[in-house]
């Protein structure tokens, strides 16, 4: 995954800021999770938060949601009359309620009238193919189904700001596609979004801005970009890894990653140069055991993010 710049940015007119974090820090005991962060959320803009596990993405979302109080600095809500924030939590619990019961309760809690809530629920559930499950207890639902309910509860009442913590995490591919379509629709409605994501496709198609977090700090903020999706192949081979390493000399770290080294070694390699790498392995006395290709979502996401981070830091400056 690499980042390519696309002109000077997608947003040219001054944006209406709806939420602002000013020099915010968050500490838990002595552990600093967010450090002197300033971030503005503009009306209708979609921001993707990218970073490794523990970089502070979820804490940042909670700070934006007002669920966590900054230890230092301040959160300023501009032109948002509470409660017009929607939150898609990472894991929606299998509650002992039916979607109908839960969503109506939350809609009314949000201040919506019952009739509006009911028509909105029916509309969303229909769009997600969940209308026949309206009166089934969620304790019987799969992760994908729960994630759809998670989304519906967040978009009820058309929030002006939608916060999403790994919206596609842990759900199967068909559900991912449906959720993805729904998110695109929501973006089309002009809802500001901040999402913590791993999926390059989601970032490319939805994000107007990408914010790279590292150790609780924003290390890069970029508008007008495209994350190039790279397919990887896994090559497993026998032979002397030292000789093979020598044979692979000259191929960059971004192209080849060693996963395992021993009597049977394993490497991840970009598919566009896999034939070349296979030839070099054979030249180095290696015997190929297997070659398999996988989609970016199937490889180690941590590795992918490392590559994205490196590209974002170096490639677009």
């Amino acid at each position: 995954m690499a980042v390519q710049e696309q002109g000077s940015g997608r947003r040219n007119t001054p944006a209406e800021i709806i939420l602002r974090l000013e020099d915010v820090s968050k500490r838990y005991d002595r552990r600093v999770v967010i450090e002197h962060m300033t971030l503005e959320i503009a009306k209708g803009e979609c921001t993707a938060l990218v970073g490794k596990n523990g970089s502070g993405k979820s804490t940042l979302l909670r700070l934006l949601a007002g669920l966590s109080r900054p230890t230092e600095g301040r959160r300023r809500v501009e032109d948002i009359r509470s409660p017009t924030i929607g939150l898609v939590a990472e894991k929606f619990p299998a509650l002992p309620f039916t979607p109908g019961e839960y969503l109506i309760s939350m809609g009314i809690t949000r201040g919506m009238d019952k009739r509006t809530v009911q028509s909105e629920i029916s509309e969303w559930l229909k769009r997600l193919g969940m209308d026949s499950y309206r009166d089934v207890r969620m304790s019987h639902f799969s992760k994908g189904m729960l994630q759809k309910i998670n989304l519906v509860q967040a978009v009820m009442g058309k929030p002006r700001l939608l916060l999403l913590d790994e919206p596609l995490s842990g759900i199967d591919t068909p559900s991912q596609k449906e959720v993805f379509r729904l998110l695109m629709d929501i973006k089309g409605m002009g809802t500001a979004m901040v999402m913590s994501v791993h999926e390059p496709e989601l970032i490319n198609q939805m994000a107007d801005r990408i914010v790279l977090l590292e150790n609780g700090k924003i290390v890069k903020e970029e508008r007008g970009f495209r994350i190039e999706t790279v397919r990887y192949a896994t090559i497993v081979f026998n032979g002397d890894p030292l000789r093979v390493r020598q044979s692979l000399e000259g191929i960059g770290d971004r192209e080849v990653a060693w996963v395992k080294e021993g009597a049977e070694s394993e490497i991840h390699v970009r598919t566009n140069i896999s034939d070349h790498v296979l030839q070099r392995i054979l030249n180095g006395g290696g015997h190929i055991v297997s070659v398999s290709q996988h989609e970016p979502s199937e490889v180690d996401l941590g590795e992918l993010l490392k590559t994205a981070a490196a590209a974002l830091k170096g490639g677009t400056q």
Binding site: G66, M106, G111
Partner: peptide, 10 residues
């Protein structure tokens, strides 16, 4: 709890 707080508004 998080979702209830969001829906309640505070």
């Amino acid at each position: 709890e998080q979702l209830s707080v969001i829906h309640a508004g505070s």
